[in-house]
């Protein structure tokens, strides 16, 4: 029952006019703007309903995205639904929302502390089951809201408030974890390359299955250079030096994939290629940008629970049937024959 009154989201401007409270120069502004653009595009061009978006934030600068996607404005509720949850639990809350109502478009806005440290188990198990949701992994290598400690993605040598002599441990590889665990759309983007970011984000939202985008979003306040000096927006330059095209890493890494039949071209649907690139780049503190891995047609977590059924029709068209537990008829009258059966089982 779609309502006919009111307004529709026609562009990013219609989502919310709240001004975010991040530090000037923060990469998160761009992610928010991109997300709004993609949301508007999905509504206007793909017919998605604005009330079906459920944006889930954990805790941290990243999670605050959800705060700026909703608004009470001149007698209107604008924007999308969302849930600002707890540190590290955003993927779990997202799974609950999705399973209770698989019609929703669920997006997780989590940080490197959120998803890589306290919520790593939540992240891995969500990805593993290939739930149809999108995880945006905000990576700036530091904890911002607690004023600049190292996160688990911090690269070796990074000086922070909690690592005055530089990080000594190996960072976690979120993209590698995601693809190994079972995500079926894995990409890396840079907040300053907005066009590419929006393309990747749109692809992730449209992908059926679990998509994970690691977005490098430099912290202008707490990410320091070697020696410990805060860099400000100068940090962008450091990052630019450490990015690299996927194809370039692939040329160096293809020897790791020991199969003579393998095509020399990078194949985005080949897990081994993506893993080789990530391993190689990780060894040398490089961050390849772009779509790393994409696998279509894998059953999603909701399909495995029989909440969603995908049937191939003639002519290659698919029909998707969704059953949402939130829409279950829970009236006693409706269920009485079944309830009597359950009671008979207790004798």
């Amino acid at each position: 029952m779609t309502s006919t009154v009111g307004y529709d989201i026609k562009s990013a401007k219609d989502i919310s006019t709240y001004g975010p409270n991040w530090c000037a120069g923060c990469g998160d502004f761009v992610i928010l703007a991109s997300d709004k653009n993609v949301t508007a595009k999905l509504i206007t061009e793909h017919g998605w309903r604005s009330e079906d978006f459920e944006n889930i934030g954990g805790i941290g600068c990243s999670a605050k995205e959800v705060e700026w996607l909703v608004e009470k404005y001149q007698g209107l509720n604008r924007g999308t639904y969302g849930f600002h949850t707890l540190h590290g639990r955003d993927p779990a809350v997202a799974v609950g929302a999705l399973l209770a109502n698989p019609n929703l478009h669920v997006t997780v806005f989590g940080g490197d502390g959120d998803l890589g440290a306290i919520g790593l188990a939540e992240f891995m198990h969500t990805v593993r089951k290939n739930y149809n949701l999108t995880i945006i992994f905000f990576d700036n290598q530091v904890y911002g809201l607690t004023k600049g400690q190292a996160s688990p993605t911090a690269h070796k040598g990074l000086v922070t408030g909690s690592t005055p002599e530089g990080v000594k441990d190996k960072p976690i590889p979120p993209a590698l974890y995601a693809m190994m665990a079972g995500a079926t759309y894995v990409a890396r983007a840079f907040s300053q390359k907005r066009k590419e970011l929006e393309e990747i984000l749109l692809g992730a939202m449209l992908h059926r299955g679990c998509s994970m985008i690691q977005v490098i979003t430099p912290c202008v306040t707490y990410q320091r250079e070697e020696g410990g000096k805060i860099r400000g927006t100068g940090i962008y330059k450091w990052w630019e030096e450490h990015f690299t095209p996927i194809q370039k890493v692939w040329d160096e890494a293809k020897g790791m994939v020991q199969s003579p039949e393998e095509t020399a071209e990078y194949d985005v649907s080949n897990l081994l290629h993506a893993v080789a690139v990530e391993l190689k780049a990780g060894e040398e503190q490089r961050w390849p940008l772009g779509l790393l891995y994409k696998k279509e047609g894998e059953p999603t977590g909701e399909e495995n629970l029989d909440l969603v059924k995908v049937e191939k029709r003639k002519g290659g068209k698919e029909s998707v049937m969704v059953h949402a537990p939130v829409h279950a008829d829970i009236s006693v009258a409706q269920n009485l024959p079944y309830y009597r059966k359950l009671i008979a089982g207790l004798r």
């Binding site: 779990a92 809350v93 609950g96 209770a100 939540e122 629970l305 059953h323 537990p325």
Partner: peptide, 24 residues
């Protein structure tokens, strides 16, 4: 009248999955 019943990976995760489900 379908629902979903799942075994989760920990109590921490279970309660948060619940939060998401009840929230919608």
């Amino acid at each position: 009248s379908y629902g979903a019943a799942i075994q989760e990976m920990s109590e921490v995760r279970a309660i948060n999955v619940l939060l998401g489900a009840a929230g919608v």
